[in-house]
Design a protein around this nucleic acid. Structure first.
Lengths: 204, 204
DNA sequence: CCGATTTTGTTCTCGCGTTCACAAACTCCT
DNA sequence: AGGAGTTTGTGAACGCGAGAACAAAATCGG
């Protein structure tokens, strides 16, 4: 489920606040969802709660982390070291959640050798070797839209099976490859749309 | 609809490729959605297609842009000029889609005066004046999670009615404020979850 | 001018996810 | 020990969005 990371974060916050036990109601409020939905989601993982009491925060946290694969370390490759690639390489939220950036790749030869976030930028052609060496399963695309499809193809070819795409393009890949897309400007456009609707409704 | 930006992007691509007319089938393929869904979405805006022919690319593009408010200029404020804030301020996709970064704000006094993407970083306390001066309706939060709620409160107080939140926190705001959330590591975690499931299923 | 063909706009059905509501289970107090 | 009060886990109903299917409208060829 796509909500597990949210629950995990909420549990971490609660744990840091010193809470040892919480009800589905509390956790749901912290995660911003309905309590029934939360309970149903958790029941898919197993019965980790106690009726009349609630959930043990740390225990549940560990169970969710285990289910999500957050207990192990995921090597990640980032392709495209522009502004966004820089920010992603430096983003502390990756490391703290079990993701380790093992390589930064860029097609631009001028960037090669540059050190970003303690990792040296290497040629894109090194992809295959790096994937094999570190057993990389997850790739991040932070290139311009024009290059994204080619990068994706080569990632798949090199053995990567999950891609996080920041380029504003629809990627065509095989069914066995999972693609997740984040479009920074799309979100802003949706907000602008709502503002626009608000404005036109007021004048009507 | 949240898919309008995708359609708009696909139409722009088609237009740049010299296409003047396209069928719902083609456009749906370019946008990565079902053609029936596309037609239904477009019919909400009005009847801009011609049966037996298709859609006029530029005409439809203009209509969608107008509906979305992309024909006008949206002033935007970014709060939190860390790695992510830097990248967002420099992100060309904002400017090209009608968003203009009118101010960069940060609570850290050491950053004040620094120029990022041609805009000077100012104290967070300038928020209200800037919002009033430029008529800002949209704010972007790129601060650490701990500061996000406070920033959001002050944004709402200053008159901002749409917030794009990059901090990994659930924001509590009034109903009249639209909040959109982008969680960079959440997407990676979902991918890792799928990888994890794949791995555990293979061993079973 | 009329039928064949193409493609939109729309209706209908289906399936999934969300929410409600309640029984089972556990704790606490007397 | 037993009842009152909580809280989980889950069965059932509801609602919404997605996709299939079809009717309406426009073009094209004879």
């Amino acid at each position: 489920m796509a909500r597990l990371p949210v629950y995990l974060r909420a549990l971490t916050t609660l744990s840091e606040a010193g809470t040892t036990v919480c009800s589905s109601e509390e956790l749901a409020a912290a995660a911003g969802v309905n309590s029934a939905k939360l309970r149903k989601d958790l029941s898919y993982l197993g019965s980790y709660g106690t009726r009349g009491v609630g959930y043990d925060v740390d225990y549940l946290r560990y169970q969710i982390a285990r289910e999500m694969g957050a207990t192990r370390d995921w090597p990640v490759v980032i392709v495209g070291i522009g502004n966004l690639g820089h920010a992603l390489a430096n983003y502390s939220g990756f490391r703290s959640r079990g993701f380790r950036v093992v390589a930064l790749l860029d097609a631009d030869g001028q960037r090669h050798g540059e050190v970003v976030a303690g990792v040296v930028v290497r040629p894109f052609s090194d992809l295959r070797a790096i994937v094999r060496e570190h057993g990389v399963a997850i790739g991040v695309i932070a290139t311009p839209a024009a290059a994204a499809q080619d990068v994706a193809d080569q990632m798949v070819d090199a053995g990567i099976s999950s891609i996080l795409n920041f380029a504003p393009t629809v990627l065509n890949v095989g069914d066995h490859v999972a693609v997740s897309k984040v479009d920074l400007s799309k979100e802003l456009q949706v907000l602008a749309y709502h503002e626009q609707r608000k404005a036109t409704q007021e004048t009507a």
